[in-house]
């Protein structure tokens, strides 16, 4: 009887050890301002030479797709992630086990309109996460808050809450990143450069527009900028 128990325990241990050897692949998001790694509450200069301190930086990554060299798309079901600079664990997306090699990843920067329109969601999509407009139904897709001497607002604050999924104000962005060497590394490093918010398609000066709090033209302009913030870091 005792032997049987020992045998069972060994067997269980063996199983768990085995499952750990299965390589778990992941995608990590590294936040930068230009070449400087982003540090919350640290003063830094952006591409428009405006000094700023970032207090919050969060955004939704959803509808993740892994694409192989033949163009086959493996859709990760129910993939919704809230990447939050303040929570290191949130910056790493663990991928489901797979032996395949991928040449590109694709995702939505934001939350698809279906999830905007079907009542209250749970988990990272819970309105409690502070990424939801209660008065004008819809998710804030990306949030950048902080202060800057350039801002004319009280406490020199700037707040950019970017969202909008309806026709005419849609800021959902499909991001596609090619994986160098067409081989997904164990931990794919994605560089996220905040400078893109301020100088992508057009320049966004904190001095001129320190606030964006609703869907519309300004949100669309900023989203067109930040859609360019992602790039793959060569291993």
């Amino acid at each position: 009887m005792k032997h049987l128990l020992q045998y069972l325990i060994l067997l269980l241990l063996g199983f768990s050890a085995f499952s750990e050897t299965q390589a778990q692949q992941s995608i990590s998001f590294q936040h930068f301002v230009g070449s400087q790694p982003l540090v919350l509450e640290d003063s830094i200069k952006n591409s428009n030479a405006e000094i700023l301190v970032v207090r919050r930086f969060k955004y939704y990554v959803s509808n993740l797709v892994l694409i192989d060299a033949q163009g086959n798309r493996q859709i990760i079901p129910d993939s919704y992630y809230l990447i939050n600079e303040a929570e290191p664990n949130s910056k790493k997306i663990i991928l489901p086990n797979s032996n395949k090699n991928y040449s590109a990843i694709e995702f939505l920067l934001g939350v698809d309109s279906a999830r905007n329109c079907s009542g209250i969601q749970t988990g990272v999509l819970d309105p409690m996460q502070g990424m939801f407009w209660t008065w004008n139904t819809g998710y804030v897709f990306a949030k950048l808050e902080g202060s800057s001497p350039s801002s004319s607002l009280p406490a020199h604050a700037f707040t950019y809450h970017i969202g909008g999924f309806r026709t005419g104000e849609n800021v959902l962005k499909t991001i596609r990143l090619a994986i160098p060497g067409s081989s997904l590394p164990k931990d794919l490093q994605v560089k996220v450069d905040l400078n893109a918010w301020f100088s992508g398609n057009s320049s966004l000066l904190i001095a001129e527009r320190p606030v964006c709090h609703s869907p519309g033209n300004l949100a669309m302009k900023i989203a067109a900028n930040y859609a360019q913030m992602f790039s793959i870091i060569q291993p």
């Binding site: 329109c117 939801f132 008065w135």
Partner: peptide, 20 residues
Amino acid sequence: FMADGGITHLDLQPLAPITA
């Protein structure tokens, strides 16, 4: 819901007055 129709689902409606 609301006079401006800003809220698109009854389940979501109470969140507006609760947080305003």
